[in-house]
Amino acid sequence: MIKSIIKKTPLYIIFFIIILHAIPHLSSSINRIYDGLKKIDTYPRQEYKAKLYGHMVIDFISSVTTELEITTLPYLIYPTHNGDLYGVAMLLDGYRVNVNKDIIMFLDMDKPIWKDDKSKCQREINNNNLTKICQLPDNYIITGIQFSEAFGNSSHTISFECKNKIISKFIFDKSNLIHSENIPYDNLLKIPNKDKFYKTINKKDCDKTITITISDIKENDFHFSITGLSGEGGTAGNVMDNVPEHIIILWDKKDARNYLAVNKNNLNKILNKYKFINNSYKD
């Protein structure tokens, strides 16, 4: 008996070594299983997923794609990437492999064109009219302006002038401002198109400078910045060359840097095909 045990000593040593290695793994796995089962009913998987995939702006894209055919993916444009970012299409419902370039989603893009526009803009107030003449980058798309803070109940007239020509002029008050849960991108004003959507201004319209005038300004500290997409300012990185002329349809209520647009040249075709676009807009 003792002889047999001695003979098998090497086996016992090996088994002891195995146990020594396996036990910590086993106990950590059992603990993890126990913890997992404890939190499985309270675990906010959807919230966690939203956070994990937040940089892909999945929620906003999903809110649009649910209205499209199950194989259609909008043309997604991120600051440094256009197209299917890390397989974002595969995280959406359906099987979205057919990119429709007429339906464009700008994601994390719509920001002040200049991070600090003091050196790029001249600002003057005459007869309560605030005029700002700004230089523009080489390549850009202007989507509107952002006020540094909300203003009172008064209404104002704003005009966008380029090449001595008024491109857009309209009256607005604080009810026209767009609010975003993402505070640094709050208090935005878009430029109404002749229909109920919003226009964008590009290089063809303005070239190097733009003059924006807002009437009936009563406070001297009334500030605003031009918002949009710009290669130079860093808001649109390398993708500017691929950005088509477009009409803004709606934006992400959580973060107004994200918006849905339609190719300007095919607006009617898209409106006829996708009724949700018309219906999504509240007059």
């Binding site: 299983i33 997992g36 966690y48």
Partner: peptide, 17 residues
């Protein structure tokens, strides 16, 4: 014993999309 580890992996995949 191995299925304990496999089950652990199963839970990990649930918690980590």
């Amino acid at each position: 014993i191995s299925f304990i580890f496999a089950f652990d992996a199963l839970l990990v995949t649930y918690f980590e999309p």
